[in-house]
Simulated scan of single mutants.
Amino acid sequence: MTIELEKHYNKFCEDKRLTRRHGQVEYITSMKYIHEYLKDMPNAKILDVGAGTGRYSVQLANEGFDVTAIELVRYNLGILKSKKSTVKAIQGTALDLSRFTDNTFDMTLVFGPMYHLYKHEDKVKALREAKRVTKVGGTILVAYIMNEYSVITHGFKGDNIKECLESGKLTKDFHVVSEPEDLYDYVRIEDINKLDEEVGLQRIKLIAADGPANYMRSVLNGMDEETFNLFIQYHLTTCERPELLGASSHTLDILRKE
């Protein structure tokens, strides 16, 4: 799995994804909620687990926060370090944060790992580690890729639906079945709920991080700046609406350590 991820991210630029218009929606939304839970905490210590190339951690460090970043992929880590920020960047995995003592960070971001951990027990382990290193009363933000986005885009839009059903990549009720070679795992809200319950974390909010943005990339790219800003306003107004959550490409689970 690690080797396949290295190959994938050696070719895929996460920085560019989050600066394209559909990625900007996810980034702007996530940063809005990060700031909401960091208000009145100018000296907050933040851990960014699966930090990628540092899109979030570098920005937060530039804002004056004490940020530590963990990233598995050496290529991504190299880009992060090349940005010459104050981020303390370390190679490591979400499954083992033993270098950190309990109750160290005010906020922990887990924005990449759940995309690539396809076993339920590994997701639980990563979430437990994030909980352990977060202070009591602290906030944990966890990103997921949603099942229906994959079925609609890869399955139906990409005309792979019959093959996926026949090969067992989809269950009879259209839930994606991921294996290590697939790199990405896709969940439904009930899957996220089960993880939170098992780990013993209290949800504050579950939001649609990018809503319909990934379905309408070409439309967003064709918008003038004023219209795109209106779309951002619309999305930020509706991203907590429960009827939109499961269809979003990404969701952001905002949790508190009691």
Rank of each mutant, 00 (worst) to 15 (best):
D96T: 02
F111M: 13
T108M: 09
Q24F: 03
D224Y: 07
H235V: 06
K11F: 06
V67Y: 11
T86G: 00
N214H: 08
N193T: 14
G112E: 07
E4M: 13
L38E: 11
L252A: 01
I34Y: 01
E163A: 15
L230F: 12
N43G: 09
K135I: 10
K172A: 14
M146F: 05
S85H: 05
S30K: 14
G23E: 07
D185G: 09
L18E: 01
F174D: 00
A69C: 12
L183S: 03
F100K: 11
T153F: 10
G200H: 06
F105T: 00
F100M: 10
E258Q: 10
M31N: 04
P180R: 00
V176C: 10
K123F: 06
T134Y: 09
G211L: 03
E243L: 04
H120R: 10
V73L: 13
R217F: 02
K16P: 02
Y186S: 10
Y27W: 14
L38R: 02
V136F: 05
N229S: 13
D15V: 12
K119C: 14
G211H: 03
I140W: 06
P242C: 12
A89Y: 04
E198D: 00
S57A: 08
H250S: 08
L18H: 08
L18G: 01
S57D: 09
N147F: 01
L72V: 12
K157I: 15
M216A: 08
R21S: 07
T101C: 08
L170V: 10
R21I: 13
M107C: 11
M41T: 15
E14L: 13
V110A: 15
I254F: 12
Y115I: 10
G211R: 01
I152V: 11
N160V: 12
S85V: 06
N10Y: 07
V142G: 00
S178F: 00
D15M: 09
L141A: 06
N62M: 02
E163H: 12
L220K: 15
L109C: 14
F100A: 09
K169A: 11
M31H: 07
E240A: 14
C239N: 13
P113W: 00
H235M: 12
L117N: 05
L170A: 04
I161R: 02
I3H: 11
S57E: 01
E240D: 03
I145D: 07
L72E: 01
S167L: 13
E4R: 15
K257V: 01
A61L: 00
V133A: 04
R241Q: 15
L60F: 06
L47V: 05
V136T: 14
Y144M: 14
S249H: 03
A69Y: 07
E179I: 00
K125I: 05
S218W: 09
A208D: 09
Q24L: 12
G112I: 02
G246D: 00
R132P: 03
G23M: 06
Q202F: 13
D40T: 06
